[in-house]
């Protein structure tokens, strides 16, 4: 079997503060194979987003961040790459989609100008005409009917859903092998979010792009992920295939998380403890879905 697109082994992260080190990730391991859609689920502050930023190499620039562990991308150990080679991967082989599409676009340039900057990463010196042609194509792929008009617009002139499509189109324009989706569209309303996520999912499939979904939204995860990792306070507490994990949650924290989903039938949100000792129970992997078995 070929090397997984992304393999994280025993990743640890701590921030140095004036009160000493604060540990954020206590050694998490996960992997994603080519074209796979994997979700990393947890509450805010659990360490989901920092994981994505470490993969991209964004957190490494922070002077206070202490990072340990092994990151492999398509079989290459990322920390062994030269700075330049590692930088080269960003925006070409891996790209990211952010929470709030409208504020993630530069307000002083048109979509078209920014699209060209993105395409320029994979094809340095791409001409304006070529870039425009490719951008129009990419926007058509995310079902934008007037790509020309959108390219000449500024982010603040477009709706949130439209900007989200633009972000998806940009993220996939260079055919990356890995797409990191950090709470994609959380800032959008639910129907628009579902629409754009479906688009992202089918498009990722078409490009054979592996997706790491980072989310606290279990409904989204259930619909779009093949496999799920549940993260709690910097530890992976449960992992398994989406269906089995939702039908038969093993770890106390996962059960609490699933119980916290509000039901349309009413009854309010169940009372669950902020934190109990149970939540720190060791990792529960579903049969055949531990890192060891999956990577064998």
């Amino acid at each position: 079997m070929s090397a997984p697109t992304l393999k994280i082994e025993d990743l640890k992260l701590a921030f140095k503060t004036h009160r000493g080190l604060i540990e954020v990730l206590h050694g998490i391991s996960l992997h994603i194979r080519k074209g796979e859609r994997v979700a990393l689920v947890g509450e805010s502050g659990s360490g989901k987003s920092v994981t994505a930023r470490i993969v991209l190499g964004l957190l490494q620039q922070m002077k206070t961040a202490r990072i340990a562990g092994k990151l492999e991308f398509e079989g290459r150990e990322l920390d062994r790459l030269s700075r330049r080679d590692r930088h080269q991967l960003r925006g070409t082989k891996m790209s990211m989609i952010f929470q709030d599409p409208t504020s993630s676009l530069n307000p002083t340039y048109t979509i078209g100008v920014q699209f060209r900057e993105v395409l320029d990463r994979a094809k340095p010196g791409i001409s304006a005409a070529d870039a425009r042609l490719k951008a129009v194509e990419a926007l058509a792929d995310v079902s934008i009917h007037e790509p020309e008009r959108v390219l000449d617009s500024y982010a603040f002139q477009l709706s949130g859903g439209m900007n989200q499509r633009v972000m998806i189109a940009m993220a996939l324009a260079n055919n990356p092998s890995l797409l990191l989706a950090d709470e994609p569209g959380t800032a959008l309303d639910v129907t628009v979010q579902a629409q754009t996520l479906r688009l992202m999912s089918t498009l990722a499939e078409k490009h054979h792009t592996a997706v790491l979904f980072i989310s606290h939204n279990l409904g989204v995860v259930r619909e779009f992920a093949d496999r799920v990792y549940v993260i709690y306070q910097g530890n992976i507490v449960e992992q398994g295939p989406t269906g089995a994990l939702f039908d038969n949650p093993r770890h106390p924290y996962t059960r609490a998380l699933l119980a916290a989903v509000p039901r349309i039938t009413g009854g309010g949100i169940p009372d669950i403890a902020e934190t109990t000792d149970d939540f720190f129970a060791p990792l529960a992997a579903h049969a055949g879905f531990s890192e060891k078995e999956l990577l064998a």
Binding site: L56, L58, H87, Q88, L89, R90, G91, T92, S95, M96, F98, Q99, D100, S103, S104, L105, N106, P107, E117, V118, R121
Partner: peptide, 11 residues
């Protein structure tokens, strides 16, 4: 956020 976005694209 658009700064982080620009960094994520490796500009």
């Amino acid at each position: 956020p658009y700064i982080e976005m620009a960094q994520s694209y490796g500009f």
